[in-house]
Design a protein around this nucleic acid. Structure first.
Lengths: 154, 154
DNA sequence: CTCGGTGCCGAACAACATTCGGCGCGCAGC
DNA sequence: GCTGCGCGCCGAATGTTGTTCGGCACCGAG
């Protein structure tokens, strides 16, 4: 993971569909070398995949919310099955298992407020392991597309 | 946004770097037609971009946390400048502006717990508009890569 | 029935990915 | 200091792909 790898990774984060030749040209190496570098980055697990970023509105998901939930008992079995069943729900985008006052944070995207309400009532509140939850509608969301490596210290 | 577009979008979400020919073959249309469809999807803003998914560990960010924050006064000016300055910080991955008991949720990734602490103390607590914050370390995080369109109703 | 528009196809050409042999650099052993 | 080895890079060659464009078929309006 030298400077060249970082540069390649940054370029692929910015635009994963640009050609290998373009990347090679921008970082200043031969296309064949660049291809080999990218192959190794994937193999080492540095690059986990390439995904298109889609506007949720186009997928009939205009309302997004963050739902924090507490489950009891806080056993591995309960956590694992709860997490899995959340990811099976179409409304759920992402699940965080956290320390602190809440155990889960669930990112959901639904067509409208009604569907958010039915998600909370019909999907979450039914589950016996869920002892509490609280939801926050998202007004805005800004996500960094390119993540740079952090320096060791200063 | 018909069935064909949905299929293309699903394929590009799963793997943004597969060839146009492959996508065309899988959805059952000619490569030239597929290319035109993808071009239109980008133009309409359905596809917002293509990004490589990178392992945070490789970028020296082994510790992730969610930090919720309250700011006062809750004016547009304060919200906007606070959001922008958060996104300028290298530790920050993502910023949510939310309704509910908290105004912001900040996703951060840092090398270790010490750097999380210094982020909270040196970056967040200094700001006069921040009246409260609370942070949760993330144990696990699972994000859906492919987001299907939600049906209108049932 | 005719006309115009829209969306799809397939061929053609330029650009690209991918492989592979070889070269040069740096390091270890002598 | 010299020799040999290994690693990583390069560039040419080949098959594959992106991209453009002319034409065709379908559909709806008049």
């Amino acid at each position: 993971m030298d400077e060249l790898d970082s540069a390649i990774v940054a370029l692929l984060q910015a635009d994963a569909r640009q050609s290998n030749r373009d990347i090679a040209g921008k970082v200043g190496i031969a296309p064949s070398t660049c291809l080999e570098r990218i192959r190794l980055l994937r193999q080492r697990g540095v690059i986990r995949g390439y995904h298109a970023d889609i506007d949720p509105t186009a997928l009939n998901r205009s309302v997004e919310a963050l739902v924090s939930a507490q489950v009891r008992p806080l056993s591995r079995a309960v956590i694992d099955t709860f997490q899995r069943s959340l990811l099976d729900l179409p409304e759920v985008l992402s699940v965080y298992v956290t320390a602190g006052s809440d155990d889960f944070l669930i990112h959901v995207a639904v067509p409208d407020i009604d569907r958010l309400h039915s998600f909370l009532v019909d999907r979450l509140a039914i589950r016996k392991e869920v002892v509490a939850f609280r939801s926050s509608v998202i007004f805005r969301h800004h996500r960094k597309t390119v993540l740079e490596p952090l320096p060791a210290s200063e």
